[in-house]
Design a protein around this nucleic acid. Structure first.
Lengths: 177, 177
DNA sequence: TATTGTTATACTCTATAACTATA
DNA sequence: TATAGTTATAGAGTATAACAATA
C-alpha cells in the first residue's frame, strides 16, 4: 500500500510520531481527476509569492544560461563585486552579500581553486585582499555577455515596460535592505 | 596567520588543491579602509539580482511575522493550496509547488504530526487525498491575518503603486512559470 | 508497464561556535 | 579584548534512484 508502517523521522530532536490516515468522502477533486486546474488564487494574489516564483525562474534560467561556464548566481555575484572592488576583504564581501563570514569560504575556495580569484596580502595581515586573476576577469567578461542574454529573456518574459518597472520598484532592495 | 596550512576540501569528488596567496600592492580600498562604500552597480542594474534580494527580504520578514505560529513560507503555501483544493494528491501538490514528490514528504509529515493536515484515503488507493484538519483551518486563518501584515510591510517598502506594479508584472510567474 | 508514495542518500546553502593569528 | 579567517558541525531544502503497492 502507499502508506508504509515506518514513517520518516523529523529532522529535529526527538522522533515525531506521524499519525496514520483517515478515510473521508471524496470531493469534486478526486472525481474530476485528470489533473483538474488547481486553484492558486490564494497564493498568486500575494506579491511575496510572485517574487519567490520569479526568483526561482531567474535562478533556473541563470543556471541554464551560465552552465557552459559552470558559474552559479552566488559565484557570479562574488566575481562582480570583487572586480568592482578589488582588494576588499572577505568580511566586507560577506556583509555585502548578506552571508556569514564562514559561509563565504567554500565558494571562495572553489573560485580560487579554479584560478578565477586570488587572496592577496593586505596591510592588515589578518585579512585577505580579494582580487580577480586575469583568467577570472576573462571568464567574468564572458559571463557578463551570457548574463545579458539571461536578462533579455527576463525582459521577454515581463515586457520592456515591466522590466523597467521591476528595476524601479525593487531598487529599494538593492542597497542594504 | 590568517592563512592556514590545510585548506578546506571541496565538496565534490576529489579534493581540489587550493593555492596559497600572492602579494600585491594595496589599492585605494585598503588604504581608505573604514568600510568604504562598496560598489554594487554591477549587480543592482540586474533585475534578477534585485528579485533575489527582494525575495530574501520577503522570506526574512515572513519568517519573523509568522514566527508565533512556527510556519515557514513553504508550509504556508502547502496549507493554502490544500485548503483551496481539498483532496488533491501529493503529486499534484508537488507539481504545483515545483518540488519533487519525494521532497514534499518531510514538510507534509511535519504538518501532519502537528495535526494541521491529514492524509485521507482516495479512490485511487495509490494516492493520499490531502485535507486540512479543523485545527489546520483555524491556524491557517490566523496565519492569513499575519500574512496580510507582512504584505502590508512589503507595500510600505515599495509603495502602493509599486506593490500593484509587482502584482501586474510578476503575474506571469504565478502560473506554471 | 506506469504511477504514487516512500526510503535512502547526497549535495548545496547557510548558520553558530570554537580556534588561530593578528590587531 | 576585538577582529578576520578558518574549521567543525549541524540543519533546512532539494534532488535522484530504487522500492512496494497499486493502477
Amino acid at each position: 500500500m502507499a502508506n508504509q508502517t515506518k514513517r520518516r523521522v523529523a529532522r529535529m530532536p526527538g522522533p515525531k510520531a506521524v499519525p496514520g490516515r483517515d478515510i473521508e468522502a471524496p470531493t469534486a477533486h478526486e472525481i474530476g481527476k485528470r489533473r483538474p486546474e488547481v486553484r492558486l488564487d490564494g497564493l498568486t494574489s500575494l506579491a511575496g509569492y510572485l517574487i519567490r516564483q520569479a526568483q526561482l525562474w531567474v535562478f533556473a534560467d541563470f543556471n541554464t544560461t551560465l552552465a557552459p561556464l559552470d558559474i552559479r548566481p552566488a559565484q557570479y555575484s562574488m566575481l562582480v563585486v570583487i572586480r568592482d572592488n578589488p582588494g576588499l576583504s572577505q568580511m566586507a564581501l560577506s556583509e555585502v552579500l548578506g552571508i556569514s563570514r564562514s559561509g563565504i569560504i567554500p565558494p571562495l575556495d572553489e573560485l580560487q581553486s579554479r584560478k578565477l580569484l586570488k587572496r592577496t596580502a593586505a596591510s592588515d595581515r589578518r585579512t585577505h585582499a580579494l582580487r580577480l586573476t586575469t583568467e577570472g576577469k576573462a571568464l567574468l567578461a564572458h559571463a557578463d555577455s551570457l548574463v545579458q542574454q539571461h536578462e533579455q529573456r527576463l525582459m521577454d518574459k515581463v515586457g520592456a515596460r515591466g522590466h523597467q518597472q521591476l528595476l524601479n520598484v525593487l531598487e529599494v532592495f538593492g542597497r542594504d535592505s
